[in-house]
Nucleic acid binder design. Structure first.
Length: 575
RNA sequence: GCCCAUGUAGCUCAGAUGGUUAGAGCGCGUCCUUGGUAAGGACGAGGUCACCGGUUCAAUUCCGGUCGUGGGCUCCA
């Protein structure tokens, strides 16, 4: 065995081959798909009559260990294209033939290892004994080449690391992610529920604590928008089907819309987006170039049909509230407006503690509306705005929406996962579809540009991210209960109520635990509820007019005067 | 939608090759206890074993379907 370190993906790719080798040994007749390394490990796709059971993974792992112990050499073999084709045909390797068709050149490489040979670009580690730490994780169905039209294969996921220690750490991280799951914490902290059978899947019910957090965020959101030159509007949840026809949603977005409601000989549809509503408001007046930009914001609840298999907690739902806004502006204002949105975005995300994010600019796709000149102007405005904000970004070529280029921002959470929240999209389509105009300096009619933007994305998704990011322990300004008073015995209840009143007058959200329980039990409960501050009140506190402060993260901090606690509390809120 | 797994008390989970009253812990209620920084004690109330149908003398258990959920594929705020 060599001491050289191979890149982790080479390592994993080799592990994936060993997996395929083991499957070939254990389950003859299985056909092979592809087996690449992925971000956190590797997988291999197999076509087999009977799906793999979870117990099969154990057997396969054992076989893999045998192969590793045998330390078989990965032998690279170059084969002439025609010969490869013949060999694969003889072996009945339909999927490999499919792959071969896409490989250019006259030579193809195979890697042979023991009795197992696989068409593969490589590279591989020199021999199977190099693999020190691996684990098979799960089985799942996956379409061949990711298309619903193709047959479904059985995919086995696994991961591999240089050392057992790193593997253990990875598995620990998976467990940490599981522990932080917003669905689990949402239940434990009594924030929200979903009543899939009784009320319908993908629809969220906010409980008092969750609703309170939501309202705190909304208030902050409204205040910030008003300070930053936005006006608020409200638009209805349904509109005549004709409106969605004009907007183009019936053409481009139909599969995500719920079927029409018919009444009074008219047909109405539930809104999947807020934009047409905002356009209705725009059209009520003749707008002058002097009026622009108009920035209209709305926490707009929209409904989108999502396939049953994709619903997931708060992250993927069927009814959600976007922190939406539409900016109607002139072409020459795009850059400034986008720049303003970027500044607002970093203010918002910073307020919640997100410091790391990745920006993507998506450019013109193959199918598009609008003039090339407009695309040019808008795309470069997006880039310039980013550059002037000294923001690094990546280009996603051709990934723009049909109606215009966009900026997507993904935030990174505590566990280094990326989440898409903010999106800023330039739209050439709707202003044209609704024949929007403003009167220019030249007294002629011009078409405004529309910018759609959502900073938090959807309230539901953002809450899910926050819950997992904070691990349920919301910072003081968001915590539904900020302070919990814990009287030790009944005789301390009265004093505690007075403390509560004092704190409540200062705007604090306070609760008292007057249950007939021991101090320890009350503290345990408050800790599990992740209340930022617990104030313990016993004989000593009552007689000295103090409270004993315990913080959720820092533990017991001793007794202080009530006014002192108020000062500390208010100071922390201002941070 | 497709593949696999799965649905037992408010929550987390046991359980029976088909057979009278289906269990535990937490939570909830009543009582005892009035305590000093993560579970004091006793008693009690909670279940059409997801729903519909089939097989059977008998189904929560076996079979089929439906509605959900989980992990994937695809898609996305």
């Amino acid at each position: 065995m060599s001491k050289e370190r191979y890149p982790l993906d080479v390592y994993r790719h080799s592990a994936s081959h060993i997996l395929a080798y083991a499957v070939k040994e254990l389950f003859p007749g299985v056909k092979f798909g592809i087996g690449p390394s992925i971000e956190d490990g590797f997988y291999y796709d197999f076509d087999r009559q009977d799906p793999f059971a979870t117990e099969d993974l154990v057997k396969i792992e054992e076989k893999m260990r045998e192969i590793i112990n045998a330390d078989s050499i990965f032998e690279k073999i170059e084969v002439d294209r025609k010969e490869a084709e013949k060999n694969l045909k003889d072996a009945g390797a339909a999927y490999k033939l499919d792959l071969l068709a896409e490989i250019p050149g006259q030579k193809v490489t195979f890697y042979k290892c023991g009795d197992f040979s696989d068409m593969c670009r490589g590279p591989h580690v020199p021999s199977t004994g190099e693999i020190k730490a691996f684990k098979l994780l799960s089985v799942a169905g996956a379409y061949w080449r990711g298309s619903e039209k193709n047959p479904m294969l059985q995919r086995i996921y696994g991961t591999a690391f240089y050392s057992q220690k790193e593997l253990d750490e990875y598995i620990q991280r998976l467990e940490e992610i599981k522990k932080r799951d917003h669905r689990k914490l949402g239940k434990e902290l009594d924030l929200f529920s979903i009543h899939q059978e009784e009320a319908g899947p993908g629809l969220i019910y906010w409980h008092p604590k969750g609703a309170l957090i939501r309202r705190i965020i909304e208030n902050f959101w409204v205040e910030t928008h008003l300070k930053n030159g936005y006006d608020l509007i409200y638009s209805p949840h349904i509109a005549r089907t004709g409106l969605w026809k004009t907007s183009g949603h019936l053409n481009f977005y139909k599969e995500n819309m719920y079927p029409p409601m018919e009444f009074e000989n008219e047909s109405y549809m539930l809104k999947p987006m807020n934009c047409p509503g905002h356009i209705m408001v725009y059209k009520t007046q003749t707008r002058s170039y002097r009026d622009l930009p108009l920035r209209w914001a709305e926490m707009g609840t929209v409904y989108r049909y999502e396939k049953p298999g994709v619903l997931h907690g708060l992250l993927r739902v069927r009814g959600f509230t976007q922190d939406d806004a539409h900016i109607f502006c002139r072409k020459d204002q795009i850059e400034d407006e986008v720049s303003g949105v970027l500044k607002l975005t970093s203010f918002f995300l910073g307020k919640f503690g997100f410091k790391d994010y990745v920006m993507y600019v998506s450019t013109r796709p193959e199918k598009y509306v609008g003039t090339l000149e407009n695309w040019e102007v808008a795309t470069s405005a997006l880039k310039t705005a980013l550059e002037k904000n000294e923001t690094k970004y990546q280009i996603d070529p051709g990934e723009g929406v049909f109606y215009g280029p966009k900026i997507d921002i993904k935030i990174k959470d505590a566990l280094n996962r990326e989440w898409q929240c903010t999106t800023i999209q330039v739209d050439f389509n709707l202003p044209a579809a609704f024949k929007l105009s403003y009167v220019g300096e030249d007294s002629k009619e011009h078409e405004p540009i529309m910018i759609h933007r959502a900073i938090l994305g959807s309230f539901e998704r953002f809450m899910a991210i926050l819950i997992e990011f904070y691990n349920g322990a919301f910072p003081l300004w968001l915590a539904p209960v900020q302070v919990k008073l814990i009287p030790i015995a009944d005789r301390h209840n009265e004093y505690s109520r007075k403390v509560k009143e004092t704190l409540a007058e200062k705007g604090a959200r306070v609760a008292i635990d007057e249950d007939n329980q021991t101090l320890q039990a009350k503290i345990r409960l408050a800790q599990m509820e992740k209340v930022p501050y617990m104030l313990v009140i016993g004989d000593k506190e009552v007689s000295e007019n103090t409270v004993s402060v315990r913080s959720q993260k820092g533990g017991n901090a001793g007794a202080i005067k009530i006014e002192e606690f108020v000062g500390k509390f208010e100071g922390e809120l201002k941070e």
